[in-house]
Computed example of a mutant assay.
Amino acid sequence: MRCSCCQKELINNVTLRELFFSSSQRCYHCEKLFSKIDQATACPGCGRPNSAELCSDCRLWQQKLGFVMKNYSLFRYDDGFRQWIEPYKFTGDYRLRGAFVLELNRALQNYRSYLFCPLPLSKERFEKRGFNQVCGCLDLTKFSYELLLRRSELAPQSEKSREDRLRMEQPFQINGPIEKIRNQKVLLIDDVYTTGRTLFHGAELLYEKGAETVKSLTFAR
């Protein structure tokens, strides 16, 4: 058995969790990388930890756009999470995609009536990286997803300041017939919630094309 995160052999002290949930087992070191967010005390809009009331950012989005995202995030975006995402997303270690499939499966079960839509990469970014980091994780779950959006080429979000992200122009177009979207509930899925601008762009476009409800799920906040 190998750790689904670092890929090291799990030889000694196999726990019951590792035995019965071997599709997402992590070694003791990697288990400590991921800090779960307490949903009871998270912002009901963006999922920000320790903000049980609607946070100031979400109030601003509500004033600007007329809605909040209602985002659910699995983990805190901290040093531990960065130790996972940097080799996976930026170095391209595809073996790391199963690090938290158990938690991801459990979260997606709460959205069974939704269409699952991972945020897309541009064609250029996909060709450079070789995979969509969100789809890579979703492919190991028991749920299917729809590529409802396509993306124009823009500078990577990781290279932009907060102010640049907030000023970003609409990067998405509908991928395929809009009949897929009309009167549907859609769950946008991304790796990290930062300013929320990209998710709100996706939600705005989907609402414009007739979606009934749009929410989001991210791996970290």
Rank of each mutant, 00 (worst) to 15 (best):
C46N: 04
L96Y: 13
R112D: 10
E127G: 01
E179T: 13
Q184F: 01
K8E: 14
Y28W: 07
V192L: 00
L60Q: 14
R150F: 04
R151L: 10
R167F: 08
M168V: 15
C46P: 01
A42C: 13
E9W: 01
S152N: 15
C43S: 03
G202F: 00
K142T: 15
E204N: 13
A211V: 08
A107F: 06
F34C: 12
C117T: 04
L206H: 06
C3A: 00
L188M: 06
R17M: 09
A52R: 12
C30N: 03
Y145D: 03
S152R: 14
R150A: 11
S152T: 14
R82E: 09
S24G: 15
S4E: 13
Q25C: 08
G45H: 08
G196D: 04
Y114P: 03
L187P: 03
E208T: 02
K215F: 00
L187A: 05
Y111Q: 04
R76N: 08
F126S: 03
A107G: 04
E86K: 08
D139N: 11
Y94F: 15
T213W: 00
P118S: 14
E204I: 12
L205Q: 12
R129G: 13
G80V: 08
L74M: 01
T195C: 10
F143K: 14
D78L: 03
K70H: 10
A155G: 05
F67Q: 03
L54F: 01
T15M: 07
Q39F: 09
V186M: 02
K209R: 13
T91V: 07
N50Q: 09
R221W: 07
D79L: 09
A99C: 11
E208R: 11
M69A: 08
E9S: 00
K180L: 09
V192R: 01
T218S: 13
R59Y: 06
Q109F: 03
E124A: 11
G130W: 07
E9F: 03
Q25V: 05
R76S: 12
E208W: 07
Q109T: 13
E179R: 10
N110P: 06
C135Y: 05
L149V: 06
C117N: 00
G98L: 01
K128C: 10
F90P: 04
Q63E: 15
R76D: 02
L140R: 11
R125I: 11
L148E: 02
A155V: 15
Y114K: 04
I85C: 07
R151Q: 06
K180G: 11
L96A: 14
T41I: 15
G98H: 06
L187H: 00
S51Q: 14
G202Y: 01
C27Y: 05
P171S: 04
N13D: 12
F75K: 06
F81L: 07
D38W: 01
P118E: 13
Y77Q: 05
E204A: 10
A107T: 14
C43Q: 06
Q133T: 10
C30K: 02
G66V: 05
L199H: 09
Q170S: 06
